[in-house]
C-alpha cells in the first residue's frame, strides 16, 4: 500500500485518457476521455498529499479546484460542440477541417 500503487493507477488511467483523446471520432467522446485524464491527475494529487504532506494537504485542495474547473470546462466545451452541430449537422471530427492549410 505505498504511494507507488496509486501512482500506477493514475498513470494507467491517464494513458487510457490519452488514447481516448487521440483515437475517438465523436467530439463528445473525446470530452469523456478528457474527464478520465483529469480524474487521473486528481488521484495523483490526493495520493501525494495523503502520503507526503501531513500538515497542509495541498493536494486535496488542488483536487478540489480541478473538479470545479473540470465542470466549468465541460460546460463550455459542450456549448461549442452544440453550436458546431447546429451549423455542420455533425460532430464527427474527421469532417471538421476548415483550418486545413
Amino acid at each position: 500500500m505505498s504511494l507507488f500503487y496509486f501512482q500506477i493507477i493514475s498513470a494507467a488511467l491517464f494513458s487510457l485518457g490519452v488514447y481516448g483523446v487521440l483515437a475517438r471520432r465523436n467530439a463528445v467522446l473525446i470530452l469523456l476521455a478528457i474527464e478520465l485524464m483529469l480524474n487521473a491527475v486528481s488521484i495523483n494529487f490526493v495520493a501525494a498529499a495523503a502520503f507526503l504532506d501531513p500538515q497542509n494537504f495541498m493536494g486535496q485542495v488542488a483536487a478540489l479546484f480541478v473538479i470545479a474547473l473540470a465542470a466549468a470546462e465541460i460546460g463550455l466545451a459542450l456549448a461549442i460542440i452544440l453550436r458546431l452541430h447546429r451549423y455542420r449537422s455533425s460532430v464527427n471530427i474527421e469532417e471538421i477541417n476548415l483550418l486545413k492549410g
Partner: peptide, 17 residues
C-alpha cells in the same frame, strides 16, 4: 511543411502528446 496543417484536431492533439 504545409502538409502538417491537416485541419484535423486529433492530429494536433497527437502533436502535443
Amino acid at each position: 511543411l504545409r502538409g502538417i496543417q491537416t485541419g484535423l484536431v486529433y492530429n494536433y492533439a497527437l502533436g502535443i502528446v
